[in-house]
């Protein structure tokens, strides 16, 4: 297309110089680069450069008009109980969300994909709508629902079973439960969509031939559905790990700020926000950010290796 166009044009004008210019403009070698240029520029501007400058800043003490190199001091300072607590909280949260947000949506997706299921679209929408609710609104509603008063919704609910009121957000285990409930409520529909998309790509013929061979539903699920969903599952797992470790707004909204009793709601990003932005120690905050990056990279790498993603296709 391109070539014939340029030829037509050059033959029209007939000039040699014009042909040359056209060759550059219509060059097939250059075109792809021009097409990806907007992405490259925005990647460099908004990703590569910030990462680079964060790495540099993590070795500095950054105050207005006073930037000094401090070597590894920021990283040494990370060795403190508050940071460990943040890492612990984020890790527990990530593991728990993985335990809930992979198997449950998977099973629900299989149900929703089944021919016998009625009102599929209705259920699809219902599970997905929570993802559209602003987390700010969600956090405030959950904070009030799980309030410590007898009149709070959840305390009234457990009161029906004769249980004592609980100060939900004041103890580590119950506040983690609340965070988990929020995550489940919000993300189950999204993960379900991923799995549903994966399920619809599995050819029907496989199931039909399995039925002819007399396979039970369970066998079909474990031998056909599960293995063929592997790529999607790994994708969901990867983004869920990252999502878990980068959780911040949920806890920020739940505690109406970055402060929770005994730091039970403090996450790694929360700690970054506290040190870098609230206290203005951008150098130290950068060190926290880089540590988070390395941590998630390492975990993702191990996980991908474990699932054999670096091996060539058999």
């Amino acid at each position: 297309m391109v070539r014939s166009g340029s030829r037509a044009e050059s033959s029209l004008t007939g000039g040699k110089q014009v042909t040359k210019r056209n060759n550059i403009l219509y060059s097939q070698k250059l075109a792809p680069y021009i097409f990806v240029l907007p992405f490259i520029i925005s990647f460099c501007l908004f990703f590569a450069y910030p990462v680079y400058s964060t790495v540099i800043m993590s070795f500095q003490e950054v105050f207005p008009g006073q930037v000094t190199f401090v070597g590894l001091d920021n990283y040494k300072e990370l060795w403190n109980p508050t940071f460990f607590k943040a890492v612990k909280n984020s890790t527990i949260y990530t593991v728990l969300t993985l335990l809930v947000l992979i198997p449950v949506p998977l099973v629900l997706a299989v149900f929703l994909n089944s021919k016998k299921m009625k009102a599929k679209n209705f259920f699809r929408s219902v599970t997905f709508i929570p993802a559209l609710i602003s987390i700010v609104v969600l956090g405030i509603i959950f904070r009030l629902m799980f309030g410590g008063q007898e009149t709070a919704l959840m305390n009234q609910f457990i009161g029906l079973f004769g249980l004592e009121k609980i100060a939900w957000l004041n103890s580590a285990s119950t506040s983690m439960l609340v965070l988990l409930v929020i995550a489940t409520f919000r993300w189950i529909g999204v993960n379900l969509l991923y799995f549903l998309a994966g399920l619809q790509n599995i050819p029907h013929s496989l199931y039909e031939s399995a039925e002819i061979d007399g396979a039970s539903t369970w066998v079909k699920f474990t031998r056909i559905t599960m293995p063929l969903l592997k790529p999607i599952s790994i994708y969901v797992l990867t983004i869920s790990i990252y999502g878990g470790y980068s959780m911040f707004v949920e806890s920020y909204m739940l505690y109406a700020g970055n402060k929770s009793p005994n730091d039970i709601g403090l996450t790694i990003v929360g700690y970054l926000y506290r040190t870098g932005l609230e206290k203005g120690e951008l150098g130290f905050g950068s060190a926290v950010g880089i540590t988070l990056l390395l941590l998630t990279l390492a975990i993702t790498f191990i996980q991908l290796k474990f699932f054999g993603m670096f091996k060539r296709e058999e």
Binding site: F128, A131, I133, S134, V136, L193
Partner: peptide
């Protein structure tokens, strides 16, 4: 469409803050 909405939702958060 759904994802566009999610994205819109995300940016909405920032703005409301």
């Amino acid at each position: 469409l759904a994802f566009t909405l999610v994205m819109a939702g995300c940016s909405g958060n920032n703005n409301s803050g």
